[in-house]
């Protein structure tokens, strides 16, 4: 086999992998326009009534609202909390720093089922199952490592001489942080907040355990409607998350290409 043929074969293989990675996600789009309540693919008839259903059916609407509410609160809480912790860990010299760092990233490696039953046990005990607070606490735990890892990486790439310089110029540690470090961390913070939002918005396992019929998030609603019915509203919900993801990527793309222009604007 010649090198050229080998390369061609490799690229064909990669093309197939790309299809495998992306195509399954797109299945939801036609399914959302299914005329009948079946899993038939591709659908035999078309309709938009499931879109109407998503907005008119209270359980779907509430689930969506809950998901956004929880994810937004989690994004804010963990970004603030995680940034503070990452900063303390990056700049501090206190004993046990390594242990705190390991602890802060531990939620990433504990099997999610165990996290779920452990939190469920506590929330049952505290009668918090199916509350906004329970979701915020649980999802903050899941999202925190993402924030800490992201912000720590951002801080590492930052010259800590800048803060010292600010100090010699008359800025207190707090002012130096807010006028120098924070603006330079902007991009890391945006990424961290987005990851925290996504981690919360995407969680199914913990949410299944700690939700109640009165308080569900979107993934829980999708999960239960998938196991109970063949309601294509599921596909509509999936299509919407797909659209949000695509939008997010587009925004990220625009921001990245605009970065060059930003420098000029700052003059």
């Amino acid at each position: 086999m010649s090198a050229r043929k080998g390369r061609a074969a490799l690229m064909v293989f990669c093309g197939l992998v790309m299809v495998l990675l992306i195509a399954p996600a797109l299945v939801a789009v036609p399914m959302g326009f299914n005329g009948r309540a079946t899993f038939e693919f591709p659908p035999q008839s078309w309709s938009t009534r499931w879109y109407e259903n998503l907005v008119t059916d209270v359980t779907w609407r509430d689930a969506i609202v809950n998901s956004f509410k929880v994810a937004a609160i989690v994004a804010i809480v963990t970004t603030v909390m995680g940034t503070a912790a990452a900063y303390g860990l990056a700049r501090g010299r206190f004993p046990g720093r390594g242990a705190v760092m390991a602890l802060a990233t531990a939620p990433m490696i504990i099997p999610i089922v165990l996290v779920a039953i452990a939190l469920y046990a506590i929330f049952l005990e505290q009668k918090m199952v199916g509350t906004l607070e329970a979701f915020v606490i649980a999802h903050s735990l899941i999202a925190l490592p993402f924030v800490i890892v992201t912000v720590t990486a951002g801080l590492k790439s930052l010259d800590d001489g800048l803060e010292r310089a600010a100090r010699t110029l008359g800025a207190s540690p707090a002012v130096a942080f807010f006028t120098v470090t924070l603006p330079l961390l902007k991009r890391s913070l945006a990424v961290a907040a987005a990851l925290a939002f996504a981690a919360s918005f995407d969680d199914v396992v913990v949410a299944i355990f700690i939700s109640s019929p009165e308080f569900q998030t979107l993934p829980v609603k999708i999960y239960s409607s998938l196991t109970d019915t063949v309601d294509p509203t599921v596909a509509v919900a999936s299509t919407i998350t797909l659209a949000i993801a695509a939008l997010g990527m587009a925004v990220a793309f625009v921001v990245m290409t605009k970065r060059g222009v930003e420098g000029d604007a700052a003059r």
Partner: peptide, 10 residues
């Protein structure tokens, strides 16, 4: 970015 549930549904 697409989400766990969407991929499982698919």
């Amino acid at each position: 970015l697409v989400g766990t549930m969407t991929r499982n549904y698919s």
